[in-house]
Amino acid sequence: MLNMLSFKRQKFIIIIGFIIIPLILLLTFSYYPAMELIRLGFTDWDGMSPTQHYIGWANYKEVFKNPEIFGVFRHNLAYFVVGIFQNIFAIYFAVILNAKLKGRNFFRLLLFLPYILNGVAVAYLFGYVFDTTNGSLNFLLGHLGLSGDTSWLGNEKMINYTLGSIGFWRFMGFNMVIYLAALQSIPQDIYEAAAIDGANGWKSFMYITLPNLRQILELNLFLTVTGALEVYDLPLVLTQGGPAGASETFALSIVHTAFQFNNYGLASAMSCVLLVFVIVVLGLQRLILRGRD
C-alpha cells in the first residue's frame, strides 16, 4: 500500500513515524512526570494515602522559610568550587596530553578510567581512603610527618570539600577528554603562524587556545553547575547527610523528605524549586558568557 503513495507522501509518513515514537516516550517519561511533580507540590500527599488535599503555596513557603531546607544549598557550594578547580586541571592535562608526548595514550586512559567506575563503588572506595583510624590517606600523611589523625568525614567545615574531592578525582578525566577533543579540532597552522610572529606558549594559550575552547568551557561549566546542584550519591553512601546534617545536599534532603518523613508534597515542591534554581543559574551563566563573546 505504501508503494501506491507518492514519494513526497511516503517521505512524510516515514518522518512522522520516526518522530512520533520518541515524542510519545518523551511525553510519557519526561513531561508527564514533570507536570505531575508540579501538581503534587500543591498537595499534602504522604505517598500512601488515596486522597490528596490541595494546600496551595504552603509547601513552597515552607521551602523558603525553613532554613533547614533551603539552607542546605550552601553545602552544594563546595562542590561547585571544587568543580571549578576540576575544570582548570582538566584543561591543564588536556593541553599537556595534546602535545607529542611519549605514552600520552596511556596517560589519557589512566585519567579517564575513574569516570567509568560506578558512583556507589567509588564512594565505598573513598570510605576506606578517608577513614580516620585505618584510612590510607591518614596513613600516608602520618608517614610524611604530617597530621595522620584527621577526621575527613567528621569535620563539619571540611566534609563537603572532602566529598567534592571525590568528584574531582572521578570526573576530571571526563572533562579532560572533552577539552582534548576540542583542542584537536584547532588547526595547527594558527599556532605555527603565531610562533612565527613571536608568540610564546602562554600567549598562544591565552589568545588561541582559550578562545577556541569557549563553547566547550560553557558546556563543562553547565555540567559543573548542574552536577553541584544535584549531588546525591556521595553523601548518601558515605555520610547519610551527617555529621549533624553538615553534608546534606538539597537533592538528598528531597529524598529524606519523601521517603523518611513521607511528605511527598513538600518533596515535590522542593524538586520544582531545584529545577527552577538550575534554570535560573544556567540562564545567568549563559547571559554572562554571551556578554563576553
Rank of each mutant, 00 (worst) to 15 (best):
F64I: 14
G127S: 03
G154M: 01
W152N: 01
F7A: 15
A193N: 07
P67M: 08
L252I: 01
R108C: 11
H53I: 12
G291I: 02
R292G: 09
L180H: 00
D197C: 07
K61C: 12
I178F: 00
F106Y: 15
W169Q: 06
L141Y: 11
G148M: 04
N160D: 02
L77N: 02
L26R: 09
A94H: 01
L5C: 11
S6V: 06
Q52T: 13
G17A: 11
Y264W: 12
F130S: 01
D293Q: 14
I288H: 06
I55L: 09
G47R: 07
F7P: 11
L125S: 07
S6K: 10
L26T: 14
V177E: 06
N59W: 10
D131C: 02
F64N: 10
G127M: 04
V72S: 02
G173M: 06
K100A: 14
F80L: 14
I166L: 04
Y54S: 12
L221V: 10
M270L: 10
R214S: 10
L101A: 14
A199M: 10
D131R: 05
I96V: 15
L180A: 07
P22Q: 03
G201C: 13
L238T: 02
T162N: 06
F171E: 13
Y124S: 03
H75T: 03
L266N: 01
Q260S: 15
D149Y: 05
Q188G: 15
P187M: 12
F93I: 15
A251N: 08
V82R: 00
G47A: 04
D233Q: 09
L146Y: 10
A90C: 02
F277I: 13
L234Y: 06
Q10I: 12
Y264S: 05
K102D: 14
L109S: 15
I21S: 07
S30F: 15
M158R: 11
T43C: 08
I216A: 13
P187I: 05
G164N: 00
G17H: 06
W152C: 01
G154W: 04
R290C: 04
F18M: 13
R74M: 08
I55T: 07
T249G: 08
K65L: 15
N66R: 11
V120W: 01
T224F: 03
I186T: 09
N212A: 05
H75V: 02
D233P: 01
N134I: 14
M176G: 05
K61A: 15
I254N: 00
Y79C: 03
S268H: 04
N3E: 15
M176H: 01
M176S: 03
I20A: 09
A269W: 04
T51E: 14
F139P: 05
G103Y: 09
I159R: 00
L140P: 10
M176A: 08
A251F: 08
P22Y: 01
S6C: 12
R214W: 12
